[in-house]
Amino acid sequence: MRERAKARQQSAVADPQEPSSPAPPAGRSDREQLRELEIAALERDIAALSSLTDPSDATALDIERIRNEVAELKRDFYLHISPWQRIQLARHPQRPYTEDFIRLLFKNFSEIHGDRNFADDPALLTGMAWFRGQPVILIGSQKGRDTRQRVARNFGQAKPEGYRKALRAMQLAAKFARPVMVFVDTPGAYPGVDAEERGQAEAIARNLREMSRLPVPILITITGEGGSGGALAIAVGDRVFMLENSVYSVISPEGCASIMWRDATKAETAAQALKITATDLLEMKIIDEIVPEPEGGAHGDHAAAAKLLEPVLARALEELSRLSPRQLVDQRYEKFRRMGQFFA
């Protein structure tokens, strides 16, 4: 924290006429720590009270009162968390992943494997499924829950064959006029020798171009990490939603810190500077809507998170199904064409 405050001071004094340093947020670390302690203390109280052998009505009331206080404090806590903390939530190991949303929102999922060129990429799932009785093509990043799964899923970092598989699935959707639903949660495209050899950049570029002119509705939901080109390669769509605690960025804060500050420990500062939260991106009109998460974050209750997402997807699908393919593609073009402000 002290480092962050220092960095802010430096940037503020570097050029006094410069309007470019963001308004410093109120020092929240002390308050945060206080809140965390309060919550922990109250939860201990609950545990102590419930462990009494003969809970009378009075204790039951006490428990209820303290529970409410805890809920209140938690709500306040999550309302004011920093971008860096949002990243921690977006990367939470219990965060709902694509497979969870498939289980909770779709029926009869049948996976489509392989790019018909090289391999099947386990970091990116594609398949056929029914959403509220409607057949859709599903595409989503997939991370693992434990170490073995994480390695098998390559930490959710797709390789060229993953992006080519996604494109194949999308073209299938176009051919049979089925909408596409995408769940994005990836730290980025895999940066490795084999990925480069097989044309990571070409695979991403092609997806961007083809998604921009796919004649069926495309709904994007950023559910966790929206990591740069690797996320965008499956995120060109008619509607782009972000879960409340997800992030979407051109580079990871750690990467940005090591390049711009030449110091990876400045990641927290970079997270603030990059404006990667759903609220920031909605304001910049890069996304269309923020999908609320259950209190405390989606990791606490997958079913509740899915339930909050479902009506958003259903409404968008309904709206988009009224457009002709031409209108869809034109509106999608305009949507991305408008992105980016500048002085003319």
């Binding site: 961007l208 921009s212 002119r213 960025s249 711009m260 404006k275 064409r337 992105m339």
Partner: peptide, 23 residues
């Protein structure tokens, strides 16, 4: 590559240009 100092706005330029090239 993309310009970090313009954050996600830079990232969206990839899609914008790719879409234009599609046309």
């Amino acid at each position: 590559g993309a310009r970090m100092m313009e954050g996600t706005v830079s990232l969206m330029q990839l899609a914008k240009v790719a879409a234009a090239l599609g046309r």
